[in-house]
């Protein structure tokens, strides 16, 4: 025993007790540091009170046909448009093969007269115009992004310009005929 050298050497090919201790304490320290780091990283994620505000309810009964409103949900604009019959038709009668991001209008609107989309351009995050009467709505009658010219149709689908995808539809449900809950 006494002449055995610690560590793995030519005379002593076996891993020694010291090797084990070094590995075991190194591993323990690594786990400890990771356990300490976890709360320090997680604290930057949304807190409980922020999450508690992450769903909102909206009464649609006051929105006239053809009118749009913008509500704030999780700090972002959500566009709600009460679509006219022409707008619904325009959205429905599109050759999906022509679309950069093909999607059927039926998948995007739970009820045809109501379109609910997140009002953030999928290019680089500007808010497209077209909510107010007289604002530029682009060639397809939906929205027009002033930043780099992306154009969206009456279903919020990208038709022209640099944006890659359609305006996203947030998860929402009709909790009454006239009331939706977003989030």
């Amino acid at each position: 025993m006494a002449d055995k050298k610690p560590g793995k050497t030519e005379d002593n090919p076996e891993a020694s007790r010291r090797d084990f201790l070094v590995l075991a304490s190194g591993a323990t320290a690594a786990v400890g540091i990771a356990a300490f780091a976890w709360p320090l990283i997680q604290q930057m994620n949304p807190a409980s009170d922020v999450l508690a505000l992450s769903s909102i309810e909206i009464d649609l009964s006051k929105i006239a046909v053809g009118q749009s409103i913008t509500v704030k949900w999780r700090g972002k604009p959500v566009f709600i448009r009460h679509r006219t019959a022409e707008e619904i038709n325009a959205a429905a009668n599109v050759n999906l093969a022509e679309l950069p991001d093909p999607q059927n209008d039926k998948e995007r609107a739970k009820k045809p007269e109501w379109l609910v989309v997140v009002g953030i351009c999928t290019h680089l995050g500007c808010v497209p115009s077209g909510q107010k009467v007289g604002e530029n709505r682009g060639e397809h009658g939906g929205w027009y992004c002033p930043c780099h010219g992306s154009q969206y149709d009456t279903s919020g689908r990208i038709r022209k310009g640099p944006a890659p995808t359609n305006l996203p539809v947030p998860s929402y449900e009709f909790i009454k005929d006239n009331i939706i809950r977003i989030g």
Partner: peptide, 13 residues
């Protein structure tokens, strides 16, 4: 108090 109740792991920090 918000750190103690709402922030993730705020209490331990």
């Amino acid at each position: 108090e918000r750190i103690m109740r709402d922030v993730n792991y705020g209490w331990i920090i």
